[in-house]
Amino acid sequence: MRSNTVSILATGLTGGLACLAACLWPLTPGNASDHFEAPLVQADPAMDITDLYLFGGSAGKTVAVINYAGLNQSLTQPTQSGTYSDQALYTLHIDNTGDDVEDLQVHVRFGRDSGGNWGVQVTGLPGSDGPLSGPVEQVLTDGSGNMLFAGRRDDPFFFDAQGYLDTLSSGDLMIRNDRDFLAGMNCTSIVLEFDTAAALQGGSALGCWATSGRLQ
């Protein structure tokens, strides 16, 4: 039933979707992130943010997921380890007054111990008294119930990028709902769960964006 509907769409949208592919979601296999990115970002997977998610966690908590080091020309998929850099700073910017200027910054950094093991640290997590840190690939919790995880995960983004490519080359709409270009691929994820009221600071909504920075 559904694929019939898609076929009908496919028949009708032929030429237009070729442009859609070219113009809107330009992707090529092995060279895509955001999932297609600019030169500075492609060169450094640790800097390459692919997605931001924002949703409710356990009672009174908000979850923010920052994914990076996903589909990137400098990585082979599926990745076999997380991508960590002690030269990187990841920031979740939070506006809680509706003026699109950040009121809070949550900072995430990676560092190693004397044995060379990677650890992760978050500072400024709303509702936390101080920094929360520990090994990567583990769920870390502080006394307030805030949580932190950093590690390699399945890339949760789904999209028929191949359909766009085929559309481009053939001139026919070939977007399919049974083909997920990101299936089988990983990313490195930073998952934060924090106190919603502490993030809102009396406001009614959050405005968020994520950035990556490299130490000068």
Partner: peptide
């Protein structure tokens, strides 16, 4: 830090 990527 120099901001390299930004995403929302």
């Amino acid at each position: 830090y120099v901001q390299i990527d930004s995403h929302a």
